[in-house]
Computed example of a mutant assay.
Amino acid sequence: MTDDWLRHNRENWDDRVGVHAASEFYDLPGFRAGADHLRPFEPEELGEVAGRSLLHLQCHMGQDTLSWARRGAAVTGLDFSAEAVATARALAADIGLADRARFVVSDVYEAATALAGERFDIVYTGLGALVWLPDLPRWARVAASLLAPGGVLYLVEFHPFTELLGDDGTSVERDYFDREGQVYDFPYTYTGGPALTKTKQVQWHHTLGDIVTALAGAGLRVERLAEHATTMWPRFPVLERVSAREYRYPAGRPRVPLMFSIRATATA
């Protein structure tokens, strides 16, 4: 495992931004025209956000962040990729939300320093974020420190069980309890081509128990843990599309959880 994981991951994500911004997967023209980027269950689980301050950790190009802003939240997005933050700021301006959305360049572990001790009503983190972090308890402590008293942490992630499945989505091929960092050198991102130039990346597998325990250890009270039978993209060829941004196993076939969400509150 490389000691330069942060540098490799930042370079890799900087390189992805141009590819993602031009992709059909992110569909920035559709988003500018009003398309929502949240999963259908998210607004229901989190509740009313109008008039509340919301911090989105590891926000990438800001579409989820700005989807909450469209619902009335005063949002701050934080990401370690300066390229992603520049795209998010431009997107906010394009859709007329620059006055209600700011974006900050920072590694998530340094978020409290980057935000000068500011506290938020809601700390939100979205899909595909946690696998890039080696120290989950540290992440949870940072997230908890950014919450105002009584504030809510809302986390939505791909279910860690999906990391065990082979490419066909029907067979278990990996060890659920293998937490060692894995170095990958792959020329493409999940949206397809063109090829990247910064191809090395480092990821970690965290079990569902690891995640819940980290939040509890940071002093947060877990109120809800929901496992979802849908995901946002056709990760496995067996999945079928059921809406614009939802895919699931076909009816009549055994299912596994594809995403999960956690709502937790600050107790002090």
Results as ranks from 00 to 15, higher is better:
residue 132 W to F: 11
residue 169 G to W: 00
residue 190 Y to Q: 02
residue 136 L to A: 00
residue 157 E to N: 11
residue 195 A to E: 15
residue 144 A to M: 01
residue 152 V to T: 15
residue 131 V to S: 09
residue 143 A to F: 06
residue 195 A to C: 12
residue 145 S to V: 07
residue 170 T to R: 15
residue 134 P to V: 01
residue 129 A to G: 02
residue 182 Q to G: 03
residue 189 T to Q: 11
residue 176 Y to P: 08
residue 178 D to G: 00
residue 148 A to H: 01
residue 159 H to W: 06
residue 154 Y to L: 03
residue 130 L to N: 06
residue 158 F to R: 11
residue 127 L to K: 12
residue 180 E to N: 13
residue 160 P to W: 04
residue 149 P to F: 03
residue 131 V to W: 01
residue 175 D to F: 10
residue 146 L to E: 08
residue 174 R to K: 15
residue 126 G to F: 02
residue 177 F to P: 07
residue 190 Y to E: 08
residue 195 A to W: 06
residue 178 D to M: 05
residue 193 G to E: 13
residue 188 Y to V: 10
residue 131 V to K: 11
residue 169 G to Q: 01
residue 177 F to C: 11
residue 125 T to Y: 05
residue 157 E to S: 06
residue 157 E to K: 15
residue 193 G to L: 14
residue 140 A to N: 04
residue 148 A to P: 01
residue 135 D to H: 00
residue 166 G to S: 00
residue 128 G to Y: 05
residue 174 R to I: 05
residue 148 A to D: 05
residue 150 G to Y: 06
residue 181 G to Y: 00
residue 137 P to H: 08
residue 156 V to P: 08
residue 158 F to A: 13
residue 195 A to H: 11
residue 145 S to F: 03
residue 143 A to L: 10
residue 188 Y to I: 12
residue 190 Y to D: 14
residue 136 L to G: 00
residue 136 L to Q: 04
residue 135 D to F: 02
residue 157 E to D: 14
residue 187 P to R: 09
residue 184 Y to I: 10
residue 180 E to H: 12
residue 133 L to W: 00
residue 189 T to L: 06
residue 160 P to R: 12
residue 194 P to G: 11
residue 150 G to W: 05
residue 142 V to Y: 01
residue 137 P to D: 05
